[in-house]
Structures are given as structure tokens and as C-alpha cells.
């Protein structure tokens, strides 16, 4: 059951529909980019750049997307913002590398690369496992970003009600039920009854669920399935272990 109202289009839907031609859609795209800055940055960091260079590159990337307005060759109708962004990022990186190489090798002159395809020859294709890993890494960062945004949203709600302490005390149960967590302890801490803790946990989970589904919904297009995307993200998180800072 989608948590979004059926009446308001998601941001990505907006972008796709208008192909960046309207004010609204440009604003929507801009918001999306703002929200998903982190995954791009971390992706670029992983590519072996130092922090400053990565940051610069990220800025450049987003500038290019937003400047264009249009979202380029990727087929937006089928994809989601995530896949679009990853595609765009890879294109960007490829272009960037080429231009860098050109600059290095003594500006402007085309270099004959041994890899260049000769007439009539088909290129030797090696399966690029590294690429897969990169993609998965990006998706993982994406998932983390989604989670972070959803959590922040809920946290802000609680803070507005003056209940940040509740949020902090109850948030461990967002991972699910486990004997390792003691409801009794929290009850004592907050001076609540155990039932009240149960009620609180249940509510927190509900709100978080709504929040994260809303977040995901914003990034899938029309007819997009929040559940599928969510499941995919869970899968991604299960595969990749943290690479560390």
C-alpha cells in the first residue's frame, strides 16, 4: 500500500513527465539531487580520489545534470532515479577519464590507443566484474541514504513533539524483535510500563515505515513498486559488507 497520496506525483514522476522542461520538474530534480548527494560522493571517493577532488567532481557532476535540464539518454520511463543517477554517473566518469587522459598525454592530440577498434574487428570483451561491484556499492550507499533520510524525518517529527528522548530510547527496536534488547530496561529508563513501551515501539515502527516508503516512493516513477525497490535494497545490503570509511 503506497503511503503517498495518489494525487501528488512523486518528484521523479515529475521529472520524467516534463523531461526537465518545466519549472516544477527542474525544482523536483534539484531536490532529488540535493537529497542523494552522499551516494554520489562516496562512490567517487571509492574510485580512489582524495576527499577534496571527490567533492569537486561531485559538484561538477550535479551541475552538469541540472544544467542540462534534460536527463539525457537513459530511458527514464522504465528506470528509477537511482538507476538513472548511476547510469549518468558512469557516463560522466567515462567522459571525465577520457578528457583527463587527453590532458595528460599532451593536450588535444588524439592518441592512438591500442584498444581502439580496427575496422572489421570486434572488440575483445572482458566481463567487467569490477563494474558490478561498483554498481552494488552505489546501490548500497543509496540504501543508506534512504534510510538516513527516513530516520531524520521521523526524528524531526518526534523532536517537534518534544519527544526526542523517546525516539532515541525506542529506535533500537527498528531492527526488529530480538531477545538482546530489553524492553524492561527501557521501561525503567523512561519510567513507563512495559505495555507503554510496546505501544511506543509499535508506533515508532509504523511512522518509520511510512517515512521510508514515502522516501522510496519519491524516487520511483509512475507505476513504480515501492515494495520491489525496498526488497532490492535489502538484498543489496545483505551482500555487501561495509567498506569502512
Amino acid at each position: 500500500m503506497a503511503a503517498t497520496s495518489p494525487f501528488l506525483p512523486t518528484r521523479w514522476t515529475l521529472v520524467v513527465r516534463a523531461q526537465g522542461e518545466s519549472e516544477e520538474s527542474r525544482a523536483a530534480l534539484s531536490e532529488l539531487c540535493e537529497n542523494y548527494y552522499q551516494p554520489v560522493l562516496r562512490f567517487l571517493l571509492r574510485e580512489g580520489r582524495d576527499e577534496d577532488a571527490a567533492r569537486e567532481l561531485t559538484q561538477e557532476f550535479f551541475a552538469r545534470i541540472l544544467g542540462r535540464g534534460a536527463i539525457g539518454a537513459a530511458d527514464p520511463a522504465r528506470g528509477r532515479f537511482r538507476t538513472y543517477l548511476l547510469g549518468a554517473l558512469k557516463h560522466f566518469l567515462a567522459d571525465h577519464r577520457d578528457s583527463q587522459q587527453r590532458a595528460k598525454r599532451g593536450g588535444g592530440r588524439p592518441v592512438e590507443s591500442l584498444d581502439v577498434q580496427r575496422e572489421g574487428e570486434s572488440p575483445i570483451e572482458f566481463p567487467d566484474t569490477a563494474a558490478e561491484l561498483r554498481d552494488t556499492f552505489f546501490d548500497r550507499e543509496w540504501a543508506l541514504a534512504i534510510m538516513d533520510r527516513a530516520l531524520r524525518a521521523v526524528h524531526d517529527e518526534f523532536a517537534r513533539e518534544g519527544k526526542s528522548a523517546h525516539f532515541d530510547a525506542l529506535k533500537p527496536w527498528l531492527v526488529g524483535d530480538t531477545l538482546q534488547l530489553s524492553q524492561a530496561q527501557v521501561a525503567a529508563q523512561l519510567d513507563w510500563s512495559e505495555s507503554a513501551v510496546k505501544v511506543g515501539v509499535h508506533r515508532l515502527r509504523k511512522r518509520f515505515r511510512e517515512s521510508i516508503r514515502a522516501e522510496i516512493a519519491q524516487t520511483v516513477g509512475e507505476g513504480g513498486d515501492v515494495d520491489t525497490e525496498l526488497r532490492y535494497l535489502v538484498e543489496v545490503l545483505s551482500q555487501v559488507s561495509g567498506d569502512g570509511g
Binding site: A143, L144, M147, D148, L151, R152, H155, K171, P172, L174, V175, G176, D177, T178, Q180, L181, R205, F208, R209, I212, R213, L230, L233, V234, L237, S238, S241, G242, G244, G245
Partner: peptide, 24 residues
Amino acid sequence: PKCGATVPSEAPQGLCPRCVLAEV
């Protein structure tokens, strides 16, 4: 506390991302 895996340092709010999303 649920799956026993190490929680990465970049995990939001210090919660195991996999478990949280799986729960949802």
C-alpha cells in the same frame, strides 16, 4: 542485536541498515 553483524560506522543512527530495511 538482531543479526549479530558488525554495524558499519556510517550506518545512520547507529542502526544495522539491513535489519532496519528488512523489518520494513
